[in-house]
C-alpha cells in the first residue's frame, strides 16, 4: 500500500491533486481511496487530503497518520502546527516540498529545525504553474503530477486522463484544462523517481481506556466562559501575501481599520494603524482600499 498525504491551504487545490492521483491509480488498475479533511475553516486555513493506493482492497479509513509520501504545496505550512506535515514520517517515506530552494538546502534547513527520518525532495512547481497556468495558487495539476511520479506506479497516459477528468468535473474551461495538462506533464517529467518504502506494520500498544466520570455542570457542559479567548488561536498562517504599512505614506484616515473584517488592524494614539500579523488572514482589503496606497502587499516571507 502507498499512503500519500497532501498539505495545502484552501485554494491550492490539494483535494483535486489527491483526486488526480486517485483517479490515475484507479486507471492503472489499483484499489484506491482518496478523501479531503475539512476543518471549521471556510477558506484559507491549512487543509489536508489523502490518497491510498493498493493492489488489494484497502482496510483503512480516514486520515493517514503514517504516510509514505507527503506533498507540501507551500513551505510556510512546514511551520504550521495546525498542518503538521511531519506527522508520522518514517525512514522509507519521502517529504516533497514545493519550493524554489534546492533539495540540499531544504534538507539542511529541515534537519536544523525539525529533524525527520524521511528523505527530502524539493521542486519549484509554483514557478512552473505560474508560467504555464498563470496563477500561482492553482497547484492541483502540478502537485497531482508530482505525486503520480513519486508514487512510482503511474504512467503518463493515466496522469493525463486523470487530470483531464478531474478538471472537467470542476467545470474548468477547456483552454485552461489544456494549459493545466501541459504543466502537469512537465511537472511529471521534471520530478525524479525516488523509491518509496511502506512503513512496516506498527504494533498497536494498549491506549488505556478511561472510566468516564460525571463532572460538575459548571465544568462538564458545552459552553465557553472565557470571552474573547479566540485570540489564542492564530490565523496569521493563512496568509499568502502580507499587507505591510508604509507609514510615510499613511495619512491616518482610518479606512484600513474600518474595513478590516477581522479587527486585525488597530490604531495607536497617533492614529497610526498596526496590523496584528498573528491574526491577519491576508485578505488584502487594506491594500485595495488604502487611498494613499500606503499598504502594500509582499509575498509571505518563507520560513525555511
Amino acid at each position: 500500500m502507498i499512503r500519500v498525504r497532501f498539505h495545502g491551504r484552501g485554494g491550492h487545490g490539494m483535494k483535486t491533486a489527491s483526486r488526480i492521483l486517485g483517479t490515475a491509480a484507479f486507471l492503472e488498475g489499483f484499489r484506491v481511496q482518496d478523501s479531503p479533511l475539512y476543518g471549521a475553516e471556510r477558506r484559507g486555513a491549512p487543509i489536508t487530503a489523502f490518497t491510498r493506493i493498493n493492489d488489494h482492497p484497502i482496510l483503512e479509513r480516514g486520515i493517514i497518520t503514517i504516510p509514505d509520501l507527503v506533498l507540501v504545496a507551500d513551505e510556510t505550512l512546514l511551520e504550521d502546527p495546525l498542518a503538521n506535515p511531519f506527522l508520522g514520517l518514517h525512514a522509507g517515506s519521502l517529504l516533497f516540498i514545493n519550493s524554489p530552494t534546492s533539495t540540499q538546502a531544504m534538507a539542511e534547513a529541515v534537519a536544523a529545525r525539525h529533524p525527520t527520518p524521511a528523505r527530502i525532495l524539493t521542486g519549484d512547481l509554483t514557478a512552473l504553474t505560474l508560467e504555464k497556468i498563470g496563477k500561482a495558487q492553482a497547484l492541483s495539476a502540478t502537485v497531482g503530477a508530482a505525486a503520480c511520479k513519486l508514487a512510482g506506479v503511474i504512467g503518463m497516459g493515466a496522469l493525463e486522463k486523470a487530470t483531464r477528468k478531474e478538471l472537467e468535473e470542476l467545470g474548468l474551461p477547456s483552454p485552461l484544462i489544456d494549459r493545466n495538462l501541459e504543466a502537469a506533464l512537465l511537472a511529471f517529467e521534471q520530478t525524479p523517481r525516488v523509491p518509496l518504502a511502506s512503513a512496516p506494520p506498527q504494533p498497536a500498544p494498549l491506549q488505556g481506556l478511561v472510566v468516564p466520570v460525571y463532572q460538575p455542570p459548571a465544568r462538564g457542559t458545552p459552553s465557553v466562559a472565557a470571552p474573547g479567548n479566540i485570540i489564542l488561536r492564530k490565523t496569521g498562517g493563512w496568509r499568502i501575501f502580507r499587507p505591510v504599512i508604509e507609514y510615510d505614506k499613511c495619512n491616518q484616515c482610518w479606512i484600513c481599520f474600518v474595513r478590516c473584517p477581522e479587527g486585525a488592524i488597530s490604531l495607536d494614539e497617533k492614529e497610526d494603524p498596526h496590523i496584528d500579523y498573528d491574526h491577519c488572514k491576508g485578505c488584502l482589503i487594506c491594500v485595495e482600499e488604502c487611498p494613499t496606497k500606503a499598504v502594500v502587499k509582499e509575498r509571505e516571507v518563507h520560513a525555511w
Partner: peptide
C-alpha cells in the same frame, strides 16, 4: 469580536457584523 475565527479572509458578513 476578536480575531482568530474560522471565517474566510475578506468575509463581508463579518465586516458588517463587526
Amino acid at each position: 469580536i476578536l480575531p482568530g475565527t474560522s471565517t474566510c479572509g475578506g468575509c463581508g458578513g463579518l465586516e458588517a457584523l463587526r
